[in-house]
Design a binder for these strands. Structure first.
Length: 221
DNA sequence: GCGACAG
DNA sequence: ATCTTGTCGC
């Protein structure tokens, strides 16, 4: 049996939660990256009524946002979706897609939460710890936390609070659109995550890395 | 016990 | 996430 990206996980939801608590202790929340030349976006889609997991990874030039490479992989789905345990369902495929890219990115944008998670280990944080690479979580909905009223202009943001601490930001990437939930994954600070996301937003609600990965992953075969 | 609940 | 066409609005 090939080793899973989850170490000695016993396969149970309870065991997954214990592993999350352990890995959360390895997350680095300070900016720990130099030149951002390459940024990757990753996302997952499903086929066959959910039996096949399809992961997409798109590599872009951090300065021009031009696409340098793409990868798409399909593997059998191994676990159902359980709120709070998304990474155990999607990470295996995501790691395969990333491995297919011709270069290792300097930063990865992930569709889903970073540390804005019950145990501070959303899929972006989990991906960061297992890959060792800087990551940011860009979600379309809140998993946990509350926030104050948000301004309506592009770039407006308010802190996402949970159990008395700031775990991310609710960010208006465009005028008149539902805000994005942005949180650091690994090796990126709470302050930098939103600005890095805004730096990758063009004319759409989602920043280019995840928007392109999203389109590729869900594009009907 | 009663809801909430990324994708 | 996915099942699904056209349609209303900026």
């Amino acid at each position: 049996m090939p080793d899973s990206p989850f170490g000695d996980w016993d396969g149970t939801p309870a065991g997954a939660r214990l592993l999350q608590q352990e890995l959360a202790g390895q997350v680095v929340l300070s900016d720990d990256f130099l030149d951002l030349g390459l940024i990757a976006g990753v996302d997952v889609g499903f086929e066959e009524g959910g039996g096949v997991t399809r992961a997409a990874a798109v590599l872009l030039d951090a300065n021009t946002l031009g696409v340098l490479a793409e990868s798409l992989v399909r593997i059998p789905t191994s676990m159902p979706y359980i709120p709070g345990l998304l990474s155990f369902r999607e990470l295996p495929a995501v790691l395969c897609a990333l491995a297919e890219l011709p270069r290792v990115p300097d930063l990865i944008f992930c569709d889903g939460q970073g540390i804005a998670h019950p145990r501070k280990l959303g899929i972006a944080a989990h991906l960061g710890v297992v890959s060792g690479l800087p990551t940011i979580g860009v979600a379309k909905k809140i998993l946990v936390g509350t926030h104050a009223e948000l301004g309506s202009q592009r770039g407006d943001q308010v802190p996402l609070m949970y159990r008395g601490e700031v775990l991310g930001a609710v960010l208006r990437s465009k005028d008149r659109v539902r805000p994005l939930i942005v949180s650091p994954g690994h090796r990126v600070s709470l302050a930098s995550a939103p600005r890095l996301v805004m730096a990758c937003v063009t004319r759409y609600r989602l920043p280019e890395p995840t928007r392109l990965a999203d389109r590729l992953a869900s594009r009907r075969a």
